[in-house]
Design a protein around this nucleic acid. Structure first.
Lengths: 202, 202
DNA sequence: CCTACCGATCGGTAGG
DNA sequence: CCTACCGATCGGTAGG
C-alpha cells in the first residue's frame, strides 16, 4: 500500500533468492540451477526455499521474470531515454555492452544463454523466455523503423534485417566475452555498431 | 592399417555413441548430458558406455571433437571449395544456414550452445570448445583479409569487425531458429549476409 | 524458516 | 558389453 514502507523480511529474502538464482543461472543454466546449490549459496536450507517457491519450475519462472526486469532497467530504459531513431539504437547497443562490461551476471547476458538453453525445452519457462526475447527484438525493429521514417537511415533499410545484424553483433560480443574474458571485444562491438549505423566514433 | 577394411564393432559403437551424444548435447547441454540418458537413447547399459569412455569428461571431450569434425565437413569444407575472398565468405555463411536448416542437430549449432554453456566452466572441455570456436572465427577473418587483398571489399574494411558482424548474424539466426522453429529467419539471414557482402541475391 | 526424510538419478566401480 | 552395486545429490514433502 505505502510505497515508502520498507520491504518485509519475506520480500527481501525473495529478492535475495532471485538475485542469486539469476547469477547461478547464467553460469549453470536454468536447468542446471539446483535447489541445493541455490540454498547453499544463500546459507539457507532447501526447505526454506520451498517456503518461497513451490517447485523448481516456479523458481525458474520467477528468475526469468526478475532477469527481464534487470534487462529493462539496464538496457531498455537507457535506450528509451535517448532521442528517437538512431540515437535509441546506439543507446541500446551501448547499454547492452556496458551491462556485459560491468559483469551484471557472471555468465554474461541472461537471455542469450536462456534462449539457446530453453529453445528445445518446450514449456512455460521457454515461453516466458521467448516472450521477453521477441519483445526485445521487436523493440529494436521499432527503433529502426523510426530511424528510417526520420530519414536517419536509408529508405530501403530492412528493419528485420538490421535488427538481426545488431542483435547478432551483440550476441557475438557476449559469446566472445564470456568465452575468453577478453574485454577488447567490447570496444570492437561498440565500433562495429557505430560503423553500421553511420555514427562517428566518439 | 588398411583403410578399406570395415570398421570394427568397437569403432562403430563408438561412432554411434558420439552421434547420440552430440544430438543430446545440443538439447540438454554438455553438462546436462548424462551417462544414463545417453545409455537409454542407445539401448545399452551405463557399464557398456564406460567400456568406451572412462569418465564423463572424456565423453564430453570426444563429443566436442566429433562435433568439430561435423562442423568442418558441413560448413568449413564447402567454404574452402569456393573461390577465394567473398565467395568463400558467402559459402561459409550459406553452409552454416544450410546446416541449421537440415537439422543436423536438434538443438541447432553445437558450438553456439557449447560456447555459452562452457564459457564460465574452466577446464579441458571449455578449452577444447574455445579452440574450435576461435579457429572458426580466425578462418572467417582470413577470408575477409583475402577479399580485401583481392579488391572485393573496401580497403578500410576491418577483418575482425566484419568477422564479428557475420559471426553475430549467424548466431542470431541460430538463436531465433532454435527458439521459434521459424524457418523464415534462415532466408532473412541469407539475405542480410548477401547485402553486407555486396552480393546480389540469386 | 528448520530438520528429517522420500524415491529417483547422478557419476563411477567391481567383477565378470 | 552386462548386472549389481556405491555414496552423493536431485526435486520434493511432512511436520513443525
Amino acid at each position: 500500500m505505502n510505497p515508502r514502507r520498507p520491504r518485509s523480511d519475506g520480500e527481501r529474502t525473495r529478492a535475495a533468492i532471485l538475485q542469486s538464482a539469476m547469477r547461478l543461472s547464467t553460469v549453470d543454466g536454468l536447468e542446471g540451477l539446483t535447489i541445493g546449490n541455490l540454498a547453499k549459496s544463500l546459507g539457507m536450507s532447501k526447505g526454506g526455499l520451498y517456503a518461497h517457491f513451490g517447485s523448481k519450475e516456479e523458481l525458474q519462472l520467477a528468475t526469468v521474470e526478475a532477469a527481464g526486469a534487470v534487462f529493462v532497467a539496464e538496457v531498455i530504459e537507457p535506450a528509451l531515454r535517448a532521442d528517437p531513431g538512431v540515437p535509441q539504437l546506439l543507446a541500446f547497443c551501448d547499454a547492452y555492452v556496458d551491462h556485459l562490461e560491468r559483469l551484471t551476471f557472471p555468465g554474461g547476458c541472461f537471455f542469450a544463454g536462456a534462449a539457446l538453453e530453453m529453445g528445445t525445452h518446450r514449456g512455460p519457462v521457454q515461453e516466458k523466455v521467448a516472450e521477453f526475447h521477441s519483445g526485445f527484438v521487436a523493440l529494436v525493429r521499432e527503433f529502426v523503423r523510426t530511424a528510417v521514417a526520420l530519414g536517419q537511415l536509408p529508405d530501403d533499410e530492412d528493419p528485420a534485417g538490421l535488427a538481426l545484424e545488431l542483435h547478432g553483433t551483440l550476441l557475438a560480443v557476449d559469446t566472445s566475452f564470456v568465452m575468453y574474458g577478453d574485454s577488447s571485444v567490447l570496444d570492437l562491438g561498440r565500433t562495429v555498431v557505430r560503423r553500421r549505423l553511420g555514427v562517428k566514433a566518439t
